[in-house]
Write a protein that binds this DNA or RNA. Structure first.
Lengths: 311, 311
DNA sequence: TATCCTTACGGAATTCGTAAGCATG
DNA sequence: CATGCTTACGAATTCCGTAAGGATA
């Protein structure tokens, strides 16, 4: 058996069973891929892929059983390499974070600054995307650490740790009727055209839920993907923005005013996640602890090695 | 990286860092071993073994970190192969049980008979040894399933499941003073020369403990490794035997009489164990369930995938 | 001096890419 | 006929065992 034979198998599934594309992705020839797959199949004694004539259709029953083991194997190989690198490169390395806009824009800068100071040999990649994209990057091994709200909790192969709780605030232009110092209510909010996050993002469900429970129908006129866009439209006086409160920290001095709305909507919890079976390098532990101080190395390791809280 | 490079590393540790012996054990040449180790070290970029000149002394610090990953990798390779075999051989295969004498002699026969009936293509190996030997065979991958009392509980890489509780009985020749129908007491027992298990076996600690707590000093004249030996000496009228009660089931009709002692000594629990990261074939689940009906496939899988009950 | 690891070298086996073949939508 | 997988073949590489070398107890 050979690790060379495993990569094509994993990639074939990811590429929708098109060997030509697998070859392209793995930078090798298509017959090579074809052969390695068949070699593994002969060695294991079972067909992994279902074929119609010369075309691959999907996984066979043994294939479905074998695939997770193949993936585990490949992940172990990466872990082994990483473990070596940690000592070999002594603090140098790469760290890929996948996260949503809100985190990347408002929470990470401080953490990243401190992290760079402590680990100036580590090259940091920060990917930004929708929460489910974050999860996918983590699971495929394209990212080491994922930071997002909610969504990450549902995957068994990820370990998801709560970091902190946050809530929303309304954003209005200076002198707006809602900035009169009176406490905000859902009724008052619903009277204005609203601008907030698109449904796929940042716990929008909690916003909708709050209005629904009060029997109110909010008038969302723009659904944006991040707070910067929302604020831009608010500045154009197109409506009242509802954004994560950290997007307005230290911003009330500008043209916009933040009005606390934490009592109106259920709070969201930002989570940080890693692959359960990943080998974390020392600086990865450091990063996580810097992002959420209560998540010390011990806490993280314990969470990774313990089971799901009721699967 | 290559699986060929990993095996020598694991074996080197097991052989006490003697490459010549590693080569012998892996049926290859010594320079080959030497090279593969160095190749892996170069690829990882760190030395795995500490060397004094040309001699290997032990693991380096990176080596200690790398070793468990190497072992996991090799185990995964075995799992993958097994997974294939399960489909390819359709019910054929091998099952290696490592267990203590008491289990092998008195409990397993019934289970093995039923198992063979259900899986006549599976070749069954039954190894017998001391409890710690059982654990060792399991951990090294030389056995698939281990059955023993107590000891197995302490390893993190093993999943240990309780099967049933048992206790002791005294064994005396027909017409012996202790076979008078009166309930047995520790005092009465201590008055006779005793024959029981060697300290390394089958929960001897509970026997010693019971006497100690009553301030009695039992007079053990023979410490044997299994009940058959003990019974032989009892038949020669050399003393009173104390054996696991299942060793006397359906035996009171012979020359020997069993006298219940379950109220005198704390009960022992027989455990069944597998490697936590093993891939269990269908017939392995079957075997376990046949040995302990409450251990269904679901129960076993849940235990394997969940964490230790407080590490 | 015996043990034990490394280096050197050459033959064997494996690997891999190109080119051609063939089935299918 | 375009796409997609397999087969065929030859070059390049890798692998591996034998033999010699050198260090250490």
């Amino acid at each position: 058996m050979n690790l060379q034979q495993l990569r094509p198998v994993r990639e074939t599934v990811r590429c929708g069973f098109n060997l030509t594309e697998v070859a392209r992705r793995l930078h090798t020839s298509q017959p090579g891929i074809s052969r390695q797959i068949r070699e593994l199949e002969t060695e294991l004694g079972v067909p992994i892929f279902a074929r119609a004539g010369k075309r691959l259709l999907g996984l066979t029953e043994p294939g479905r059983k074998v695939l997770p083991l193949v993936e585990r194997m490949l992940e172990n190989a990466v872990n082994l390499k990483r473990c070596g690198d940690e000592f070999a490169l002594q603090g140098h390395g790469t760290l890929t974070i996948s996260t949503t806009h809100t985190q990347a824009r408002y929470l990470l800068p401080r953490v990243v600054r401190d992290f760079r100071q402590a680990h100036d040999g580590v090259v940091l990649h920060i990917h930004q995307g929708a929460p489910q994209h974050v999860a996918q990057m983590l699971r495929s091994g394209d990212a080491d650490i994922g930071i997002a709200t909610d969504i990450l909790t549902s995957y068994e192969d990820l370990v998801t740790l709560p970091c902190y709780r946050w809530s929303y605030c309304a954003v209005v232009p200076h002198g707006h009727a809602l900035a009169d110092g009176q406490p905000l209510t859902l009724e008052r909010l619903a009277a204005f055209p609203l601008i907030s996050y698109d449904a796929a993002y940042t716990g929008r469900t909690h916003i909708d839920e709050a209005f629904r429970q009060q029997g109110l129908v909010p008038n969302f006129i723009i659904l944006a993907m991040n707070a910067d866009v929302i604020k831009t439209y608010v500045e154009l006086d197109m409506g009242v923005g509802i954004v994560a409160s950290m997007a307005m920290e230290g911003r009330s001095a500008g043209d916009l005013v933040a009005v606390d709305a934490s009592h109106l909507f259920e709070g969201n919890v930002t989570h940080i996640a890693v692959r359960r079976s990943a080998f974390l390098r020392a600086y990865e532990f450091d990063f996580i602890t810097q992002f959420a101080p209560q998540l010390t190395r011990d806490v993280i390791e314990q969470a990774m090695h313990s089971a799901e809280p009721a699967a």
